[in-house]
Design a protein around this nucleic acid. Structure first.
Length: 301
DNA sequence: AGTACTACCTGGAGGC
DNA sequence: TGCCTCCAGGTAGTAC
């Protein structure tokens, strides 16, 4: 469930640790997570220096270049998608194993801090500075791709993405809605990464609530003002999620293992059957666009 | 062509 | 306590 706010939070916190570092070794414990792309040899990264971390929608792009120029042709970009349970954590050099725990609302105790490698840790990147970058993903929905800068644009997964939801102005939103809404539900359009990149199930439901629109409503039938309200709602909801450093519902963690805070600010997601925080009506839940969906029958028309 | 649906995967929760 | 079943969901691929 890492969506734009979660992935951007990871990007912001990971970049200071990675940028400038040189890769010493790479181990991939679950080969099927590396999707066949332009380049399929993770060992290519060994000896390269990390130039920075970028984000496109829910994808993270780790840029690497040869530290001894000129080294044309060796540059690589590691593309990471966290799937629904992926965690990228950073272990600084010499840091002892973290044994702090936090208690989830369910009562479950989970480790707080960069995770200790376990059977779900599928990628380990060792750096010359002694740090380690770990990728842990219990559900294994995450994906890794490796590409050269020239081939990046030809990766289908990235080529399909629409404009990033974070810096989407209302005019662009309205134009794309006019062209792409069709006969689908509002929720289906919001989840379509080729419409706008970065929205997932949590922020789709929250955006619909914020705009007072039922997720199952026909997208093409929305009035102009309501479309504009939805555009504003998407921006506000993503911005709030980002300000809260992401939503930790279960698996999401920051690179240092800490949790996001946006779960405290969710109005409808996972609250089916509970009272609407705005009007007190019982929130309804159903499957819309093959996703668990929650809305207020009174506030959302 | 556009839309809808399923496979993939495994931990957690709930029922008995 | 333990076993079983169901559910969660992003994306690609398939079916209609």
């Amino acid at each position: 469930m890492p969506e734009l706010p979660e992935v951007e939070t990871v990007r912001r916190r990971l970049e200071p640790s990675l940028a400038g570092g040189v890769v010493r070794s790479v181990r991939l414990g679950l080969p099927r997570l590396l999707e066949s792309g332009a380049v399929e040899r993770l060992d290519d990264l060994v000896g390269l220096r990390c130039q920075g971390v970028e984000r496109r929608g829910k994808y993270l792009l780790l840029r690497f270049a040869d530290p001894v120029p000129p080294g044309p042709g060796r540059d690589r970009i590691l593309v990471v998608h966290l799937g629904m349970s992926g965690q990228l954590t950073w272990h600084p050099a010499g840091q002892a194993a973290i044994d702090r725990f936090t208690r989830m609302p369910s009562g479950l105790q989970v480790p707080l801090g960069p995770h200790t490698p376990d059977r779900h840790t599928h990628l380990v990147v060792d750096w010359e500075n002694g740090g380690k970058l770990l990728f842990r993903d219990p559900r294994t929905f995450g994906r890794l791709l490796l590409a050269s800068p020239e081939d990046l644009a030809s990766l289908p997964r990235l080529a399909r993405l629409g404009p990033d939801a974070l810096d989407l102005d209302t005019d662009t939103f309205l134009a794309r809605w006019r062209d792409m809404a069709g006969r689908r539900s509002v929720k289906a359009v919001l989840l379509d990464q080729s419409f706008v990149a970065g929205i997932g199930n949590i922020y789709a439901d929250e955006s619909c609530f914020e705009a007072g629109i039922r997720p199952a409503a026909r997208a093409g039938a929305l009035s102009g003002p309501r479309r504009a309200a939805l555009a504003a709602a998407v921006r506000a909801v993503l911005r709030r999620g980002l300000d809260n450093c992401g939503t930790t519902f279960r698996d999401f963690r920051h690179p240092d293992g800490s949790e996001g805070g946006n779960q405290e600010d969710l109005r409808v997601y996972a609250r089916g059957g509970q009272p609407c925080l705005s009007c007190g009506s019982t929130l309804k839940s159903a499957v819309v666009a093959t996703r668990g969906t929650v809305w207020c029958p009174r506030c959302q028309r």
